[in-house]
Design a binder for these strands. Sequence first.
DNA 1: GATGAATGAGGATTCATTCAT
DNA 2: TATGAATGAATCCTCATTCAT
Lengths: 212, 212, 212, 212
Amino acid sequence: MEQTADERPRRRQARGERRIAQLLEAAASVFCTTGYTAASTNAIAREAGVSPGTLYQFFPNKEAIAVELSDRLMHEMRETYGKALRPIAPETPLEEVIAATVDRFVDFNCRHPVFFALMHGPDVPGAMAQEHDALHAALIGRVEALLTPFLPDARTEEIARTSRMCVGIYKGGLELILAHEGAEREAYVQELKNVLFRYLDPLLMDSYPLGV
Amino acid sequence: MEQTADERPRRRQARGERRIAQLLEAAASVFCTTGYTAASTNAIAREAGVSPGTLYQFFPNKEAIAVELSDRLMHEMRETYGKALRPIAPETPLEEVIAATVDRFVDFNCRHPVFFALMHGPDVPGAMAQEHDALHAALIGRVEALLTPFLPDARTEEIARTSRMCVGIYKGGLELILAHEGAEREAYVQELKNVLFRYLDPLLMDSYPLGV
Amino acid sequence: MEQTADERPRRRQARGERRIAQLLEAAASVFCTTGYTAASTNAIAREAGVSPGTLYQFFPNKEAIAVELSDRLMHEMRETYGKALRPIAPETPLEEVIAATVDRFVDFNCRHPVFFALMHGPDVPGAMAQEHDALHAALIGRVEALLTPFLPDARTEEIARTSRMCVGIYKGGLELILAHEGAEREAYVQELKNVLFRYLDPLLMDSYPLGV
Amino acid sequence: MEQTADERPRRRQARGERRIAQLLEAAASVFCTTGYTAASTNAIAREAGVSPGTLYQFFPNKEAIAVELSDRLMHEMRETYGKALRPIAPETPLEEVIAATVDRFVDFNCRHPVFFALMHGPDVPGAMAQEHDALHAALIGRVEALLTPFLPDARTEEIARTSRMCVGIYKGGLELILAHEGAEREAYVQELKNVLFRYLDPLLMDSYPLGV
DNA sequence: GATGAATGAGGATTCATTCAT
DNA sequence: TATGAATGAATCCTCATTCAT
């Protein structure tokens, strides 16, 4: 469409790449501590130990930082779990799939706490909506891919709805998981698995009357 | 003299009450459209049609507005549903309880969209944390009260955990419900009920093996 | 059309009016010394001895300041010369009309040097274009009104063109006048009168073959 | 070795010349669209397709770019019209001289729109004042040279004043000419010629009472 | 109680310029 | 030479809050 942005790819120097990583790291930290909305580009630059101008050499605005951060998170998510998930055999019991998936997602969130901050995004539609949605959509997409083989008879619409519900449940549960530690955290993880299993299991029943 | 003295304060208070209600209404509107973090007191005052100074005559700061708003919401929630819930007979099937509760909560949220904004509150711990938690805690308390009769054998801890999970699920589901309209919204409402029922039903089984 | 701005007239306090005058005076000063484009709102506020926030309580941006300043200048121009010009008798010799008009305009410019800065406006079309044009248009309008009785046979188009030329000439001459002082300035004033007279006189000849 | 040493510098200079031309072209474009004051060196570099660092390898600052641009414009003006003007015979009627000169200047301005931007320069004394004046002075010098043979009796001072007036008139007229197109533009060109002719013709009369 | 004025620090962003590679 | 990185002061503008009237 329009080429206003990114007119030319402009080669990046190694130093620049490092700065970008540094800035994204700083942004992640700031987003986590103050939230996306309240985070300021100046604070991010300060956290990264660079001047405001430097930040703007790499990102046109705060949203672009969140976008890039989201992209990298999604990419790493794919890298880390995408391959691991492929070999899921159709016969794998749902319980195991859920357990593995929740464990992975929780693990991922613990290693990248900013994921949570970005998921909730701005308090409000509008700013950053598209990226917020992009992260969301990616997550939903992954869940859809995961669920589809289990629900061959379901309509696309239903799968979409179910996947969204799962992600919604996951978000609700994650908040609790991250708010606790140790054994209590584990307990919440288990509860989350229970919720998801009990929610999804009956749906499978419908699809695979001969299942189990 | 004494009559006037008797009346004046009343009038003042009456006017004050109207002002406060006006301001809270405006705040609700602004919180909904811009989110709590991005909302500005000036914007609230403008929306209320008063000057900034007037706002600060009734509230010491932005957070106090959110606090009062939350308090009133919680109060109304109690007023509206508290009484209605009391006559719940222990024999009432869980399914009905859940359906009624979800319907009521969803209805409440639709009538007070700011509830959702306040629930999510600032993206982050810090500002308004206590109030955010107060709303939360109130909600959890209600759910605990609702669940306890169904889970007489459960330990307090478990009830707390389960209630929190329910609230977490509810929040996740509500976001989806509010994001859709018409039939699709209804479908999500039903899904939310399903999730909660399937999650809670087995717990009851344990408690009331002979139940229902 | 749209009511986005100036939703309610908001009463102004006396203090506010004084501040506005003060700010406009400061703006005039800054526009004169740095030019419109390079003038900064902070510099204007500083010059006025107030904080940036105060400036923005009265003006939404730099352009609005220029607009208001222009409006007031135009208003004063009307106040000062509008009445004085009315009694121009048709028999008044062109030479006198020009001399009086130039003297008045020059005098006005000397008392309000910012007029010149605003006339030239931003270096470029775009920003402030409309206001720049408004000042211009007002000036041209005045000249048209002045010329029309002298050129009864001319088409509107021609009068417009002639008036624009006169204003253009005037602007060119004014720059020279303001750049000099004392006798030299007077000499340029005289030259400007000469130019205008010699330009316009032949046009009258055509109209009033029996004139003079 | 020496050959390469001989060639390299040349190539470098050739490349440098190209770069400079490229940068000046870009600067002309940016000055035209945003005006001198608002033009940024970064924007010029971007327009030229080079990095900011490269720009500063050839020009110490923004003003130097304008200076060099002006110099080249003046040079081209001399190249193009200087020779053409020389053979002006003293008997050439003033009308023709003016017509030819105006046509040439207008033509020049249409081919180099940046000339106009530089003529007006920064709105204000200060930055770039000297260069602004240099362009101006050059223009005035040319007009003086043009007028002197027609006004042999006039004092230097008067010639200077008259020339400045002509340039001032020209600037005023040029703005109108550039603001219009087609037939209307032509009409303004004609008006400008008229103004200048009527202004200057009587001066000649004084000098050459027996002239023509 | 109500208003609008006032603040000044802080927000995002730009810019002329210098530096390392 | 050329590049892109880096700077930090300066830009415009907002905001929570206080003050005078």
